[in-house]
Design a protein around this nucleic acid. Structure first.
Lengths: 392, 392
DNA sequence: GATATTTAGTCCACAACGTAGACTAATTGG
DNA sequence: CCAATTAGTCTACGTTGTGGACTAAATATC
């Protein structure tokens, strides 16, 4: 059930509405804001005054001229005050990003490490160092880090912040949040979900799409009308375990013939001839050299992805499909097969089959999404930032 | 982006909050309402006075006694004023239900007809007659029908109210809404979605579940935190076309090995030995007689359903799975296999596998959900009912 | 059985917030 | 230079929720 609305809540919502409009449109005059929000000029002026006082917004010297009449003074989000921390632990790297309120990336720190061979505690300690040094630098630049989020490759219990099972890292029941403790409000979430949000806020993309994350495992994040779909307990989007062939190779999830067995990084890169095989770029090299084994692996992966996506489209009806992770460099060799498979399996019934695109954010999507999520929260409720709830 | 909140919107929300609380808890005193909503006694009294004046709520003579102090006067939803119409066109029947604001079913009309052999126009005309007579009777009983919804077996374009393709009825591009025109605000929606909502509001069920509708086709409606998930365009939940086996029998959707080919009514009932086979009850008879062909068909259907549901659980993370339609009478013969298949395919990774239950609403789930949706809307925004928007 | 206690509901002065429209400010067009 | 036009502020006002005093109606206690 919704909450009671009192004067303060009314004000908070309108404040958020104004801030959100400024954020969405870059910069606007008070008059334009009044038109966009439906509030009166008087009210907008008051709200903007509040936002300026808080330091969330500034008047740009620039004024909108050209037309007749008194020129308006534009306001825009102030990027030099409030910022958020985006963190990611993945199998072979750690990433830290600082994003300010205007959604500019202020700081990037990435470290290549093999996190599979290290203990969770050590990985987290390393991330902690990286994050703290980034926070220090940001604070030195006058930024106030109001919160952060951490992406991990695997399902996470959102409430407790415990990673129950991240098979690709070899983690089980790791209480990341309490181990990390940066003295900043933090939360953890699935890498695919946060990458999807990264795509939403930092990509050129649409507001309705399924983001497919091709890492060691395959995950997906579904964004509908600009917000993330998490399912009942927050474990939605496990695309890697959608059934491609019910009697296919056994999977560590207990099933058989899951997508991951055909299009997961191990299957895709290792499938060439049993040898451990290099990274994705080695694979790309072979593909360019028209290596038949590599081409066949891609073909199979593309077909399997198409099959799994056809189930997904039927269940979840995304508008667009955005491929990320390893699927980006491999797209020239799998794109067509995926599209064709999807088309042939859905074409008869659906009016339109969702187009398949490629993410342009690279591996930083998740860390950006993590930081963006915090920024988004501030914009959606700036009042909360000013008056933090009294701790009991 | 959200809308500006003005005083009238604030009031409308609080009105909805009070009405919603009364609706959810049966009957409450003003004092209890104040506690539940967080509003002051004064405000609650004013709002309740409004609701009483509107006729949405009444004071019950009864008062809550027993304890010390002045007894409170309880108020409850008034069921004798406002009601909604729930309609369903299915393959072999038409159903009309009238549900009042207190969610009591006031009227049931069902007609068995073979809608596959009739023209859409005729089917709709027949439903129209049935609905109008029901409305007449309801109006005669002092009810005001404020709106209605129609369930059809197949994906519907919510905006236009056009059924693009309902293969089980043999319909293509039928503008149901404009043909039906009852002089009451109406909308159309997928049968599975509305049945899921029926289960939510009239079943004994939970607020997070996947409802599986076993009709000629197989559909699903996903309810998360008490609201329906529709996907980007409203076509989510096509469980019948989730892939069970990628090279299985061809399906009319263009794919192969879709769930519908294994567990759809035709496959399930027809699969016995090529003969047209009677209805579900004939099948049940054979199963009771331990007919091996019937048992095998059930086994296969249960297995396929388990496979498709394992993909679904991975993608969409439902808390519970509720089976409806033909799966209800067949449950004794398929339940175990579904559960086992699901368990063995998900058990390794998931902390808990969603339990599988059976709907108790029978075939009226969709029509009830349809009416319930309208009632829900009134309770969520009673102010809109009082001041209908001025038509342009 | 009278009185204290407790709880329900109403009343009234007040505060918070948005509105409407008059008013001032700063441009461009003629 | 003045009219027209648009931006932004100012002020009186309306709507709505609040808080606490007040009335009402029951039970508990002596």
């Amino acid at each position: 059930m919704t909450q009671a609305v009192r004067h303060d809540a009314m004000r908070a919502r309108n404040l958020a509405l104004v801030l959100g409009s400024v954020s969405a449109r870059g910069s606007l005059t008070r008059a334009a804001l009044a038109e966009v929000t439906g509030l009166t000029k008087t009210t907008v002026s008051k709200l903007v005054a509040d936002l300026i006082e808080t330091g969330l917004v500034v008047e740009t010297g620039a004024v909108r001229g050209g037309e007749r009449g008194r020129p308006g003074v534009e306001v825009r989000i102030r990027g030099d005050r409030v910022a958020a921390l985006g963190l990611e632990i993945n199998v072979d790297y750690l990433a830290v990003r600082v994003v300010d309120l205007s959604r500019s990336v202020r700081l990037r720190r990435t470290q290549a490490v093999d996190n599979r061979s290290a203990q969770p505690v050590d990985v987290i300690a390393r991330l902690r160092d990286l994050a703290l040094s980034a926070v220090d630098e940001a604070v030195g630049n006058g930024l106030r880090i109001v919160g952060g989020a951490l992406a991990v490759p695997g399902p996470v219990d959102l409430g407790s912040g415990v990673v129950h099972n991240a098979p690709n890292l070899g983690w089980r029941d790791v209480p990341v949040l309490s181990l990390l403790d940066l003295g900043i409000p933090l939360h953890v979430e699935n890498e695919a979900n946060l990458a999807a949000l990264g795509e939403l806020w930092f990509g050129s993309g649409p507001t309705d799409f399924l983001y497919v994350s091709g890492e060691i495992g395959i995950g997906a994040g579904l964004v509908v009308a600009g917000s993330l779909f998490r399912g009942a307990r927050g474990f939605a989007g496990e695309l890697g375990h959608v059934v491609v062939s019910p009697d296919g190779p056994p999977c560590r999830c207990g099933g058989r013939g899951c997508l991951e067995q055909y299009a997961g990084q191990d299957a895709l890169l290792g499938a060439q001839n049993g040898a451990p095989a290099g990274g994705v770029m080695t694979m790309v090299g072979r593909l360019k050299a028209q290596d038949p084994a590599a081409t066949a692996a891609c073909h199979q992966a593309g077909w399997a992805l198409g099959v799994a996506l056809s189930s997904t489209v039927n269940l979840v009806d995304p508008d667009t499909i955005v491929l990320g992770g390893v699927f980006v460099p491999l797209f020239p060799w799998i794109g067509d097969i995926v599209t064709q498979t999807l088309q042939s399996r859905l074409g008869q019934m659906r009016v339109s089959v969702p187009p398949i695109m490629v993410s342009h954010l690279g591996f930083e999507a998740a860390a950006l999404g993590a930081a963006g999520q915090v920024i988004e929260r501030v914009i959606a409720d700036p009042a909360a930032l000013l008056q933090p709830p009294i701790p009991d």
